[in-house]
Amino acid sequence: MSEKIPVLELQRVDKSFGPIEVLNEVSLKVNAGEVLCLLGDNGAGKSTLIKTLAGVHKPTRGKILMDGQEVAFAGPRDAAGRGIATVHQFGGTFPLMSIGRSFFVGVEPTKGWGPFKRFDRKKANEIAVKAVQDFGITRIDDGERLVGGLSGGERQSLAIARAVHFGARVLILDEPTAALGVKQASHVLRIVNETKRRGLAVIFITHQVMHAMAVGDHFAVLIRGAIAADFRKGEKTREEITDLMAGGETMAQLEANVEGNT
C-alpha cells in the first residue's frame, strides 16, 4: 500500500496565526480506500489541520500535494472542486430545508429551459433518498422531510452520502460521532466503512479511541500542533493509543495527577 501515490499529502506544513504557531512541520499521507484517524487533545490543532486541507486556511510554510502534484487552494470552493469534502459535527447546515433541497444546494436539478427553468423537486427528492438509502439508511424515505427533523446520525449520513454523490475523493469528518449515542455512532461508523469501500480517502477526527479503532487503517496523533505518533492498524493497543491521546502521559500518570489534586 505504501508505494501508492497518496490522494492527499502534507509535507512539513506549518500554520501560524500571527505569532501563534498552531501547526508545526506536519507531514501526513492520505490514501484512497483508507481511513486516517486524526487524534489529539483539545486545542491540539486538529480543526486547524483539516481547515488547511479544506482550503479555509493557507499553510504558512510547507506543501500540499494531490495525486503527487503540488496544489495551492484558492479557497474552500477550490478545494471542494478538487474533490475535498468536509462534513461538520452537526451534518446538514440547512436544518429548515427539505432533504431533497438541501442535498442539491447550488447544483439544483432543473426541468424546462431558459428563464423558465423549474427546480425538479421530484428528481431531487428521489436522488437524495436513493443516495442515503444506498448507505443503508432505509428509514429516510421521504425527500420532503426537513433536515432538522432527522436524527444526528441520519444527518451525518445524509451529508456523507451527499459528498460521495457529488464525486468527493477525500472526505473529512470533524468529530462526526461526538454528539451521538452508541447506536447512532455505530450507524455513522458503518457509513464511514462503506465510504472507504467505495474507494474514497477518509480523514476521521475523533476523541473516542473505540470509534477510531473500529474504522481506522492509519492513525496520527497530534500534540501541540506536531505529529507525535503515526502508526498503522494493529501496531498499537487501545491502552497505548489512549495514553497517546492524553498528551503523552500514561493513564496511570493521569490518575495520579487527578488524585494528587483532591
Binding site: 442539491f104 444546494v105 427546480f119
Partner: peptide, 12 residues
C-alpha cells in the same frame, strides 16, 4: 425556480 433554494440556503 432554482433561485428559491438559493434564497433559503442564504438565510440558512
Amino acid at each position: 425556480s432554482p433561485w428559491g433554494n438559493w434564497i433559503a440556503a442564504l438565510g440558512g
